[in-house]
Write a protein that binds this DNA or RNA. Structure first.
Lengths: 209, 209, 209, 209
DNA sequence: TATGAATGAGGCTTCATTCAT
DNA sequence: TATGAATGAAGCCTCATTCAT
């Protein structure tokens, strides 16, 4: 009962993902994709009008999947800080489980091979992140600096983490890197850091005799 | 004094830089490079055995130039913190002045078109950065977390900053983004708050008695 | 009464005619024909074993229809001259009413895409024309020159007329062109003129006395 | 001293002419052209940006050559009648000597594969013909009917003649067909007979005392 | 050094045709 | 009868690279 048509389409998408990551867009001929996917050359073009249409579809899917994974469970978190921390952990978890997809997103995030419309549609899945940042700024727990800059930096930091984690040998090392990385990110975002704020809060408590 | 031969070689390199950034590696035919550079197709292959040899040369040059720019004046800085802050500011300044080169580095940082040896040689120019981080850790001013992770995160943060800055309309906005970005980076790197957090936690325990 | 099966076949033929005229044989994919005809790709190949079988069928139909139209009413004409003139007018009338079919015939009259057998069978519909010419020669009203040449020239003249007529703006202009064209054709075919010319000259002399 | 570059280009043009005539535009792959011409596939595209550019060039050349051949010696002819007769004979002579080129012109005269600009430029070579017809009308030796129609009919008649001639077995038969054909054309064009016929009819009336 | 005509492998895509349903 | 997913050969064209000059 598995839809045979869908099977071939999925096989193409899966194979394309691997090959694009491995060899880049221009580096992977459509003929290789179809061969590795076990379909005829014409079949690829039956499902995707163009090589670019193929990568567009792929891009959108991966972005959507990533966004969904990152947003998992954030509603149960009480504030922006914990929400963002959970997003970070979700991202790392998903990235580790889907290294190809992470690499794919990085490779084609600014690629001209992906259509502008696909870029825009892909970006829309992450609007919820900007919302959390905005809430955090309102709460006073996130530094009130340029939101888009924060967003980009957070994204690049997570990406760097995943990159670093993928070289980790043990589970322990991996966990350590995640913790350190999330600390780094949060401390960078936190408005507490001003050392003074901490001092202030802590001080208040400390000062209570 | 201008060696005519060298002129052509330089013209090819300069043109190739622009075109690779604009259109990617596979997207720019060598014929286009030579045409835009005002030389014959054969001339390009006289100076560079291969298209890959051309991009390797380019990559190495840009990396070396970037490293040199980032290291400017760090000897006069007293400690790791100020050194790193100066590196960051140098990087941003250079990146803004050389947008094509920045883009080029990002595009080909992990690219298979650049040979492994070139990647390694290119990376070597940045060893001084890891040294500063190591010193900072020894000084106690930089968090004692994975050095390579710090390095990657710093690099990606700077890159994100430059990206964000390039969309800034006014000089004032630009300066603000730089300051905020460097704050973010430093606060992320700083051991102060981390220390305090640890202190805090430790404090909790301390307070138990 | 409309056989649904036949409906599809007719739809395919009709669509194919338009598309072949518009875009040529190789220029119109069978997939386009079936799409525009509103049938599945497989259906076309159910009714026509091959793309060439389709165009053969089309060719034969159009030729037969044209021949029938051209022969309409010639039995009521008294002699070869009037017969031929009626054939010419019939041809023009039909050609104006069926521009696609005329173009189709011209396009594929010598085309290798139409099988030789179809060409031969198509030509057979026009044998009656050669018969009229033969009769005219026997009557003495048509020049006794190569019959096949006459046939070809008449055909090409009619075709030229139709082409010229299709650029006419007004009905009056169109009628004028038809009359002039038929005059041209007939005068070209007529043996009278030679005779009359001779008679005329002779006549002049005769009249001198 | 024969320009080697030009050699290859000419070989391609010559081969393309034969193949297009033999197999049509879509029926002859560029790969076949280059193979038969003895050059590499890339060479064809070095000289002609596109397959269409190739046929355009070919079309223009053939048209120009045909026009030049048809106009040969007409200046030495005294009047429109002899000029046109010479044009006709020139055309037939050239057509017999260059059967492929004649066929080529017929095949692609209305072809969409030849660009509109090429069609227009090609047509311009034949303006001198329309001029002769105009002069003839002024002289009173050519029927005063639509000039463009005359032009088309003459062209198609000549073409039909050539077609018929190419099936001639003996030189004598060929000469006969040429003479008959030119007679046909001229009688069709001549205003004498038309005029005389009218004169004749009128004359009869006039003679009625 | 420098040129640019020439090469030919290889890429993307089309399309006539088949076949299981 | 009718469908449309699937096929794969073949077409047009690009482009890194060479080589005679």
């Amino acid at each position: 009962m598995p839809d045979p048509a869908s099977d071939k389409k999925e096989a193409i998408l899966k194979t394309a993902l691997s090959l694009f990551v491995e060899r880049g867009f221009f580096g992977t001929p459509t003929s290789l994709i179809s061969k590795e996917a076990g379909v005829a050359t014409g079949t690829l073009f039956f499902y995707f009008k163009t090589k670019e249409a193929l990568i567009d579809t792929l891009y959108l899917r991966v972005k959507a999947e990533a966004a969904e994974a990152m947003g998992k469970g954030i509603d149960r978190e009480p504030d922006a800080k914990t929400k963002l921390r959970r997003v970070g952990r979700n991202a790392v978890t998903w990235g580790i489980a889907n290294p190809e997809k992470i690499t794919f997103m990085e490779l084609f995030a600014h690629s001209p091979f992906v259509s502008t419309s696909a870029h825009e549609e892909g970006m829309s899945h992450f609007l919820f992140l900007e919302n959390i940042i905005r809430d955090g700024i309102r709460e006073g727990t996130v530094q009130d600096i340029d939101r888009h800059l924060l967003f980009c930096m957070m994204a690049s930091a997570i990406s760097a983490m995943i990159g670093r984690i993928s070289t980790a040998k043990t589970r322990a090392e991996r966990e350590m890197v995640i913790d350190q990385g999330l600390d780094y990110i949060w401390n960078g975002l936190s408005s507490e850091k001003g050392g003074e704020m901490r001092n202030k809060k802590a001080g208040k408590k400390d000062m209570i005799p």
